[in-house]
Simulated assay, not measured.
Amino acid sequence: MADLNTTIRDLQAEGEHLDALVASLTDEQWAGPTPAEGWSIAHQIGHLAWTDRASLLAVTDPDAFAESVAEAWKTPLGFVDEAAEVEAARPPAELLADWRAGRIKLAEALAAVPNGIKLPWYGPPMSAMSMATARLMETWAHGQDVAEALGAPAPPTNRLRSIAHLGVRTRDFAYAVNNLTPPAEEFRFELTAPPADGVGTADAVDEVWTWGPEDAAQRITGPAADFCLLVTQRANPGDLNLTAVGPDATRWLGIAQVFAGPPGAGRDPKADA
């Protein structure tokens, strides 16, 4: 797997890709809807800016971060949406500038975290590597919503490997937030990596990313991009080219969730849209 510096570079690259999508939008377009119900493009970027600031505070001032957590838990099911509303109400140019500055500061702060240090968060403490991966995941996921809203291309890249790895590692978390007991047996995951050039050719040999025992009875296979859409709940499982073998793996497809918090509502099938 990638090291911290590589993951931070991937995080920066993902932010730059999304930045390019929104940089020239009009104020009217910033207010336009995205696939996330009730969230405009401004909400999407505002959420990223707010979470980057929270992450930076966790790295640089744990005591102040603890105070912010205590305040957030006064509305545990609403503070994320409330923050997004506040951010979305800002002038787009101001919001964009703030997000850009925050991304740079967070990348620098994460790179300076000593090995072995655990950073506080709204859930369990995490390493700098875990925080960088989580920020990469969120930036990509919200970027998918923005790209879909704009009808813009969002070609998959090898940056998805870290997101897929996080999806595999959080298998049991999805059961826990749904009040289900995780199966004792490990799953086998076999995910086809995106083409190195973003296009691929008919005679190319696809790289496959794997996790879990080769002989596992419960298996999930398919494109890594579809798997990342699944675990970030950016698409309905029925719209994805993923195959589950075994009842436990099949059930997990319906509850997979890589992000913290209560069970996500997921997305409606495209056929019903």
Score class of each variant (00 low, 15 high):
G116V: 00
T139C: 05
T192K: 14
A147T: 05
A72V: 08
L95V: 10
W121N: 11
A70K: 15
L96K: 08
L136P: 00
L160A: 11
P156S: 11
E185V: 01
A66W: 05
G151T: 01
R135T: 06
F189K: 02
T75H: 15
G102V: 03
R100W: 03
T75Y: 04
P183G: 08
A174C: 09
V80E: 06
L95D: 03
A152D: 06
D61W: 08
S68D: 11
N115H: 15
R159T: 11
E67T: 14
S127D: 00
E67C: 04
L106N: 06
E85D: 14
L166A: 13
E148C: 06
D145W: 04
E108V: 13
F187W: 02
A64V: 04
I163H: 05
R103V: 05
A72E: 11
A134Y: 06
H142E: 07
N179R: 15
R90D: 10
A107F: 01
N158K: 14
A88D: 06
R135P: 02
E87N: 09
E87H: 09
A147E: 04
P91D: 11
P182L: 00
I117A: 13
A184V: 14
N179Y: 12
N178A: 09
H142I: 04
A97R: 11
A141P: 07
A109Q: 00
K118I: 02
N158R: 15
D172V: 03
G167A: 05
L160I: 13
K74C: 04
P183V: 01
K74L: 12
